[in-house]
Write a protein that binds this DNA or RNA. Structure first.
Length: 486
RNA sequence: GGCCCCAUCGUCUAGCCAGGUUAGGACACCAGCCUUUCAAGCUGGCGACACGGGUUCGAAUCCCGUUGGGGCUACCA
C-alpha cells in the first residue's frame, strides 16, 4: 500500500458557504469521510467564508444541517476561516521576513494592462518575467512613501509534480510557475494562503477536493514548502455534470442536498448514489450500506472522469431504500412530509402498519405521505371520471352491499379472510372476481391503483371500510349512468 | 493563446497499471412471465471501447497524434 493510503489521516471538507450544499460538494464530503473511516483519523469541517460578500451565517448553518442530514460525521470543527485571518496575515509577513515573499507595488490596473499587452502579441505572461522583484532599497523607499503593496510568494523556477491519488503524477513545468499574491494590498489573505496555512495548522494529511483545484495545486505545494511544512497528499475529484453534459446547474434539475431532502429522498439513498458517482467497489455491488462502503473504500479506485448525475437512477436507489430501510428510519424521516399533508399527529403504530402496506409503491417519502392521506380522512370524495365505468353497472350496488355485509360479519378481519368472502361472492353470482375487486378498491381508497385490494381493505379497517362501502353504494345509486339500449 | 485534466452502451460503471473476455453488471427503454390495479419481482432483448496512426502473432488495455469536453491562467474562492 502506498504511503499516501495509510492512516491515520487528517482530512478536511472545506466548502464556501455561498449557497446550498451542492451535490458535488456533498460527494467530496462523503469521500473524505469514507477515507477517514477506512484508514482511521479525523474529519475536519472548515467553512471558507473569507469572501464576506458572498457568505453569510445562514448559509453556513444550512451547510452544516445538510451534512448532518446526509449522515456525514464531522470529528472537528466547524472552523470558520474568517476568524483566522490575522493568523494568515502573520504567516504572510513571516514569509516576507524570511525573504520567501516580496512586496509588489504594481496596481491592479497596471498589472492588467501589461498582461493584456503581452497576451495580445501572442506571448505568454508571467509576473516573474514581466516585472520582477523590487530591490530592498526600492521597497523600503516606496513603503515609506506610503505606497500600497501586495505580497507575492517567490515561487522557484522549477518543475512541480503533483502526486495525485486520483490522477497519478501530474507535472507542471518550470515555465508555468509564477509569483502569485498571498496578501492583498488591503491586508487580507488570498484564498491560496488561507487554505495552506489552515491545512498546515490543522495537520491535514490528505487534501481531497474538486478537480477545479488541480491547477492551483502547484501554487499550494510551493506555499507549503515556503511555510516549511510537510506537503499533504492530494486527490482531485472530477466534476458532476447535468444531463446536458454541462456542469450540473439548476437548468437541468435539482443540484443541492436540500432539494433532494425536500423531494423525499432518504439520506442514505442519496449518500449511496453519490458515493457510487465516481467510485466503485470494483465488483458489481450497487446497493451498499455505509459500513460496506467504508470496508470497500480505497482512494485509488476513485474515477478520473466526470460523471453525469442521473435522476432516474437516484429514483431507483431511493425506491430500494424505501423498501428495505428499517421502519423506524422511514417513520423518522417521513414526519415532515406527514405534517405537510396534514398528518402531523398520526400515531406511530398506525403509521407503521400503513407504511408496511405502501412502501413498495412509493419512490420517495413525499409519495408515501400522499398515499397515506386518505386513511385518515372521514370519507372519500369519489371522482366522477374514475367511477364512470361502475356507474354503468346497474347490478353493482346490490353486490357491493352484499359484499360489505360479508365483510362486516368477519371476526378475523384479515387479507385472506376478506379475499375469501369476495371470491365466494363472485362465484355465487357468477361474476369475475375483478368485477368486484375494482370497485372495491375505488370505494376504499378513491384510487384505481395501489397495493393489493385486500391489503387496502384491511388497512382501512372494518368499521371505516363499512362506512366507505355504504357511501360508495349511495354515490353509485345517486349518480347512475344509463346505458343505451341496443 | 499558454499550461493541465478527461474520453467503454443514452446514463453510472467493471475490465486498463501486470495486452489474448462472446467487452461484464446496474439505471433507463422494449418484450414476455406473474397478476385484482399500479408498482415491485423474474426472464429475455436493445446497446459501447471517440477517431487516426504506430508497437505486437494479438490492443479497450502500451506509445504518438487528432477531435471533442472541462479546469487553471485574478489583489475570486
Amino acid at each position: 500500500m502506498p504511503v499516501e493510503l495509510q492512516g491515520p489521516v487528517r482530512v478536511r471538507f472545506a466548502p464556501s458557504p455561498t449557497g446550498y450544499l451542492h451535490v458535488g460538494g456533498a460527494r467530496t464530503a462523503i469521500y473524505n469521510e469514507l477515507l477517514r473511516r477506512r484508514l482511521g483519523g479525523v474529519n475536519i469541517l472548515r467553512i471558507e467564508d473569507t469572501d464576506k460578500q458572498r457568505s453569510d451565517e445562514a448559509m453556513t448553518r444550512q451547510i452544516i444541517d445538510a451534512l448532518e442530514w446526509l449522515g456525514v460525521e464531522i470529528d472537528e470543527g466547524p472552523f470558520l476561516q474568517s476568524e483566522r485571518l490575522e493568523r494568515h496575515r502573520g504567516e504572510a509577513l513571516r514569509l516576507l521576513a524570511e525573504e520567501k515573499a516580496y512586496h509588489c507595488f504594481r496596481t491592479p490596473e497596471e498589472l492588467d494592462a501589461r498582461r493584456q499587452e503581452i497576451l495580445g502579441r501572442g506571448d505568454s505572461y508571467r509576473y516573474k518575467t514581466a516585472f520582477g522583484v523590487p530591490t530592498r532599497d526600492e521597497a523600503e523607499r516606496r513603503i515609506e512613501a506610503g505606497e500600497p503593496y501586495a505580497i507575492r510568494l517567490k515561487v522557484p523556477d522549477e518543475e512541480i509534480v503533483v502526486r495525485d491519488l486520483v490522477r497519478g503524477d501530474v507535472p507542471f513545468p518550470a515555465e508555468a510557475q509564477d509569483d502569485f499574491i498571498i496578501l492583498r494590498s488591503d491586508g487580507t489573505p488570498t484564498y491560496h494562503l488561507s487554505v495552506c496555512v489552515d491545512d498546515v495548522d490543522m495537520g491535514v494529511t490528505h487534501v481531497v477536493r474538486g478537480e477545479d483545484h488541480l491547477s492551483n495545486t502547484p501554487k499550494h505545494i510551493a506555499l507549503f514548502r515556503a511555510l516549511g511544512a510537510e506537503v499533504p497528499a492530494f486527490g482531485h475529484l472530477p466534476l458532476i455534470l447535468g444531463t446536458d453534459k454541462k456542469r450540473l446547474s439548476k437548468r437541468t434539475g435539482a443540484t443541492s442536498v436540500e432539494e433532494f431532502r425536500d423531494q423525499g429522498i432518504l439520506p442514505r439513498a442519496l449518500y449511496n448514489y453519490l458515493a457510487l458517482l465516481g467510485w466503485s467497489p470494483g465488483d458489481d455491488r450497487e446497493l451498499m450500506s455505509r459500513e460496506e462502503m467504508i470496508e470497500a473504500f480505497s482512494a485509488d479506485r476513485l474515477l478520473k472522469s466526470a460523471a453525469v448525475f442521473d435522476p432516474d437512477k437516484l429514483a431507483w436507489i431511493s425506491a430500494q431504500y424505501m423498501f428495505h430501510s428499517d421502519l423506524s428510519v422511514i417513520v423518522e424521516h417521513l414526519r415532515p412530509f406527514l405534517t405537510e399533508v396534514g398528518l402531523g399527529e398520526a400515531p406511530e403504530e398506525r403509521l407503521r402498519e400503513l407504511i408496511e402496506v405502501h412502501r413498495l409503491r412509493a419512490k420517495t417519502l413525499r409519495e408515501l405521505a400522499e398515499q397515506l392521506v386518505h386513511y385518515f380522512q372521514d370519507g372519500i370524495d369519489y371522482d366522477d371520471e374514475l367511477t364512470s365505468k361502475f356507474r354503468r353497472q346497474a347490478e353493482l350496488p346490490t353486490l357491493l352491499e352484499e359484499l360489505s355485509a360479508g365483510f362486516a360479519t368477519l371476526d378475523d378481519y384479515t387479507v385472506d379472510a376478506t379475499e375469501q368472502v369476495l371470491r365466494d361472492l363472485a362465484t355465487k353470482h357468477e361474476v369475475k372476481a375483478g368485477f368486484l375487486i375494482h370497485p372495491t378498491r375505488i370505494a376504499m381508497s378513491g384510487s384505481k391503483t395501489g397495493p393489493g385490494v385486500f391489503d387496502v381493505v384491511v388497512a382501512v379497517g372494518q368499521e371505516e371500510g363499512k362506512r366507505r362501502m355504504s357511501a360508495f353504494v349511495e354515490y353509485l345509486k345517486a349518480n347512475p349512468i344509463e346505458t343505451e339500449a341496443e
